[in-house]
């Protein structure tokens, strides 16, 4: 029976669609995912790092600033890419060119559309974070072979944003609020979640807030892997992991629900 042609294969078709779309812009985006880490690591890690190390480097756990910064930037970059992929392309499929509605007219379900998109974002994130991690190693900014595990940690960080944001995007009809998501969500997180310096540098009041954000946990986990300090506090690492997985899980359920509702409503 045709109806047995399955979730697995049908959501694969959604994935394939995103992949085909992407191939057209592949070169430009590979270039920027390669260039971005080089530029940031050079400017902030090497350039500015020279002055940070002049000061009080014990705040950084005794490692050079570049080594401290690199995993933070890795996790933060995963967040930014994920946020982008979960906003505009979702709006594109639902509103601008309505390709998701076209898919919905075939055996593909709302669940397939949601999962296919998240699967695609996972692949994108894996690509970006792998290139980034290779750059970190080439910059000599990795202290432990565990850095290879920083890739899945960063991907997970990205998904902890992609899933809930995709759920949000599915409720929007214009891009107006995306601007607020980036300006008041993504940018402050990028700046205040321990990417550039430990959160204990923040005013006491802000520290518990940082704890609530997925990026804080993503940065901490990624950094613990990159520095090899994860073995010192394995329980803490498990907490980080649990927080990230919760965001991914709840976000995915909401994304499936919202995208399905939206497709049914038309």
């Amino acid at each position: 029976m045709a109806s047995l042609a399955h979730p697995r294969t049908t959501f694969g078709r959604v994935f394939e669609h995103r992949f085909r779309q992407y191939r057209r812009t592949f070169r430009a985006s590979l270039f920027s995912s390669f260039l971005l880490p080089v530029l940031f690591l050079t400017a902030m890690g090497l350039g500015l790092g020279a002055y940070v190390d002049d000061g009080t480097s014990e705040a950084l756990g005794g490692v050079p600033y570049l080594v401290f910064l690199a995993p933070g930037l890795l996790a933060a970059t995963a967040m930014q890419s994920a946020a982008f992929e979960a906003t505009f392309p979702i709006m594109g499929g639902l509103v601008w060119n309505r390709t998701f509605h076209a898919m919905f007219a075939t055996p593909i379900s709302g669940r397939d559309v949601a999962l296919g998109n998240l699967a695609w974002i996972t692949v994108r994130l894996t690509l970006i974070t792998t290139v980034f991690t290779i750059m970190i190693v080439l910059f000599g900014a990795a202290s432990s072979p565990l850095i290879s595990l920083a890739i899945p940690a960063a991907v997970l960080t990205g998904l902890a944003f992609a899933a809930p944001i995709a759920a949000f995007s599915a409720t929007q009809r214009t891009v107006e609020k995306f601007n607020a998501v980036f300006r008041f969500g993504i940018t402050p997180l990028f700046l205040f979640s321990g990417t550039f310096y430990p959160v204990d540098q923040l005013p006491l009041l802000l520290q518990p807030i940082a704890w609530l954000t997925p990026l804080y946990h993503g940065v901490a986990l990624t950094r613990a892997l990159s520095l090899g300090t994860i073995t010192e506090q394995p329980i803490l690492a498990l907490v980080h992991l649990a927080v990230l997985l919760t965001f991914v899980g709840v976000g995915t359920v909401l994304a499936v629900r919202n995208i399905s509702r939206r497709l049914v409503r038309g």
């Binding site: 940070v52 008041f184 205040f192 540098q201």
Partner: peptide
């Protein structure tokens, strides 16, 4: 949207200028 444009440099100032600045002197 207009108003939000004002916050970006402010966030950078607070984070990089003051947060990271404390480590730089």
């Amino acid at each position: 949207v207009i108003l939000s444009g004002f916050f970006e440099p402010l966030f950078y100032l607070l984070s990089i200028g003051f947060g990271l600045g404390a480590l730089i002197g």
